[in-house]
């Protein structure tokens, strides 16, 4: 089996689905000739033509708004927003339009469309290229929000998103785009949306993470193991609608919970996970829930970035704190 990184796994998913589904088209800034600034759509315009892999003018609101119309008109648009910071330009179309169309039309319009967006920090980029605004999307009823953490899930989740028949925002952890290589079957397969994965089994505490933070969480778990503590690591994968059942089940077993994310702490998804766990498994908790997160500040530029982004050491410190009670 071929070893692929996340970029090539996503590229393969798009390529295979385009071959299968003539209604699929890709649109966005620099997605065609350039193949995307991260090369996720590399080679697809040459293969499928400029009508199916469309370089659009520079206008995020237009990209998403037109994708809505394309979907309503029977196409399967895959819109790329170049960086998560530019999603905000399209926020009316995403939150007020795309997310509500099923409701507004009383179910008449099932909008199958995918908005792909590179996500998160750690690449020493300029302002607005390093944020993790998943809360804004998860707080919007009607949106499905997904973020893979590895190449296998990247392909499987993207194929699921393309076949879901619902609007999906597909967040791609840019820090580990090329950093993680894993075996990815050439064959067609899907990874279910709405299901978290237990990435590592353990019994002493639960760590929940997603996207690039999974690497940090797994590394922390490895170090904990060396110190004799066994951590169960859960990859949330679908951020909304969230699979809190898997988390609750794990906490019932371990009694301790650490949630790690890059986004600011206040109202980060960690807050929702903590709330659900305290609603459903309060009596199982042996220690306060630990949140290891970005700070409630503006995401800094590169010289302070490493202070902002939680890494495995901060996850480890959070885990030790939870274990010390």
């Amino acid at each position: 089996m071929a070893k692929l990184n996340i970029v090539s796994a996503l590229n393969q998913a798009l390529d295979q689905e385009m071959a299968r589904n003539p209604r699929l088209l890709i649109l966005g800034e620099d997605v065609g000739r350039e193949g995307g600034v991260f090369r996720v759509t590399d080679g697809l315009q040459a293969k499928y033509g400029a009508e199916r892999v469309v370089d659009t003018p520079l206008a995020e609101s237009a990209i998403v708004g037109a994708a809505l119309g394309l979907a309503a008109g029977g196409m399967l648009p895959v819109a790329e927003i170049q960086f998560e910071g530019f999603l905000h330009v399209a926020m009316d179309q995403i939150c007020n339009q795309v997310a509500r169309y099923r409701n507004r039309s009383r179910g008449r319009y099932q909008l199958g469309l995918v908005i792909r967006v590179p996500w998160g920090g750690g690449i020493h980029a300029p302002e607005h290229h390093s944020e993790s605004p998943e809360t804004l999307l998860a707080h919007t009823p009607g949106l499905t929000v997904v973020q893979p953490s590895n190449p296998y899930d990247a392909k499987g989740l993207l194929l699921s998103a393309l076949r879901l028949g619902e609007p999906v925002v597909f967040c791609e952890p840019k820090r580990v785009y090329r950093a993680i290589k894993a075996e990815v079957p050439e064959a067609d397969y899907t990874v279910p949306i709405g299901k978290a994965a237990v990435a590592r089994k353990g019994k002493d505490l639960t760590i929940v993470a997603w996207g690039a933070m999974m690497r940090e969480a797994l590394e922390a778990a490895e170090e904990l193991q060396a110190g004799g503590a066994s951590a169960e690591v859960i990859d949330l994968r679908t951020l909304s609608p969230m699979d809190s059942e898997t988390v609750v089940q794990s906490v019932r077993k371990t009694g301790r919970l650490v949630i790690a994310h890059e986004a600011p702490r206040t109202l980060g998804l960690g807050a929702e996970i903590a709330a659900r766990v305290s609603e459903e498994a309060l009596t199982s908790l042996l220690a306060p829930i630990e949140r290891v997160t970005g700070f409630d500040t503006v995401m800094p530029l590169s010289q302070l970035e490493e202070y902002y982004l939680p890494d495995h050491r901060r996850v480890l410190a959070g885990a030790r704190k939870a274990l010390s009670v």
Partner: peptide, 26 residues
Amino acid sequence: PPAPDELFAYTYRSLPPYLERQREEL
């Protein structure tokens, strides 16, 4: 290089208590 405190300096005119705690944490 900028001091880590710089991260918090311009978020608000004055730091709310929870942000002060985060600064201490860092």
